[in-house]
């Protein structure tokens, strides 16, 4: 199969421009229409903060749009990293049980009324990944690749059952957990924006600075022969991306398919080189989740995971069919 490769810079520009345009559009639509020009005036401070338009933009729509974009960037970027270092096209935070593990940790923290949710989400995510790794990692052949996803599915199911159990035992906290797990950006605060942006930046920097190592690992050569300490590098990258995913999950709940579909779509135009794949996927993930969240919002606040599954499922089916 020949992979067509567009010029990288053109794609970078096109995706960045699309993301900027989508941000403006998404913020402008809703019960109250706010034209793009006025959005920019609000952001630049030309419209007083007391103006209702400013309140809508700054307190509701902008943080929501930014948080959705940043979480999308985290999921897609982590998907690239997981797929690259685990040599597994199906690896992403969701299929590896990282997202479910994070949700489990968060549910536990909510039930026990602990003041901090993200550290528990992180611990849950990393513990799930560790377990999946131990169960599923048998070497570098394709069967171990399948084992890893199998382990991810099993660990994910067990943790999912655990979450249901926690909900049953949670008493009056069950509402908080359910709301959290559904995954919604409707209540995104600027704090969420800060955290999600920071995790997106983390994934982007890891992806760019370790692009060569991931190229070497994913090429199929013994990475050590090209100077890559694979154990250290893989562990480090998985840990970093699990951290970012856990933060994202504690903001948005579990959202599937973004981390799976975006990297595969981007690969069609970027090829497997991570120096191109990572930035484009981060932008593509941001764009996809931003639009998915807008669709969720327009359809009466559906869980955004429903939209990503509805969009992502068919795309993934197409990719599977195309790759036969």
């Amino acid at each position: 199969m020949m992979t067509p490769r567009g010029p990288f810079r053109l794609w970078l520009l096109a995706l960045s421009a699309s993301l900027a345009a989508a941000l403006l559009w998404v913020i402008s639509i809703g019960e109250v229409r706010i034209p793009a020009g006025e959005i920019i005036d609000v952001i630049l401070g030309n419209i007083s903060g007391a103006d209702p338009r400013a309140v809508i933009v700054l307190s509701i729509r902008l943080p929501r749009a930014l948080a959705a974009s940043a979480v999308g960037a985290v999921l897609a970027g982590s998907g690239v990293v997981f797929q690259g270092v685990l040599l597994n096209p199906l690896a992403e935070p969701y299929t590896l049980g990282v997202a479910t593990g994070a949700a489990f940790g968060a549910s536990l923290a909510i039930t026990l009324r602990l003041p901090f949710i993200p550290p528990f989400a992180f611990a849950g995510g990393v513990a799930a990944l560790g377990l999946v790794w131990i169960l599923g990692h048998g070497g570098r052949d394709s069967s171990s690749s399948t084992r890893l996803i199998l382990a991810g599915v099993i660990v994910g199911s067990v943790l999912g059952a655990g979450i249901t159990l926690i909900k049953a035992l949670a008493g009056d906290q069950v509402g908080v957990i359910v709301l959290w797990l559904l995954g919604s950006f409707s209540l995104s605060s600027w704090g969420d924006v800060g955290w999600s942006m920071a995790s997106a930046l983390l994934v982007l920097l890891l992806g760019i600075f370790w692009a060569r190592d991931m190229d070497v690992i994913s090429s199929g050569v013994n990475p050590r022969s090209l100077g890559v300490d694979d154990r250290k590098t893989v562990g480090f990258l998985l840990f970093g991306c699990s951290l970012a995913t856990a933060i994202a999950v504690s903001i948005s709940g579990i959202i599937g398919f973004v981390g799976l579909v975006v990297p595969h779509l981007i690969r069609l135009v970027s090829g497997p080189s991570h120096a191109r794949l990572v930035p484009l996927s981060v932008l593509g993930g941001a764009l996809l989740l931003l639009l998915a969240d807008t669709a969720a919002r327009s359809l009466g606040e559906l869980p955004v995971g429903v939209i990503t599954a509805l969009i992502g499922g068919p795309i993934f089916c197409f990719l599977l069919w195309r790759g036969r």
Binding site: M1, T3, L87, R212, D215, V216, S218, S219, G220, V221, N222, R224, S225, L226, G227, V228, D229, G271, P272, S273
Partner: peptide
């Protein structure tokens, strides 16, 4: 590891190419 790879190159028996990198990208590694 990096220093070892600056001094020793190993050509494996099985090339095992997995991802569709171009020939040039692969050699540049």
């Amino acid at each position: 590891r990096r220093e070892v790879a600056r001094r020793v190159a190993v050509v494996p028996q099985q090339t095992g190419f997995l991802m569709p990198f171009s020939v040039m990208e692969t050699v540049l590694m």
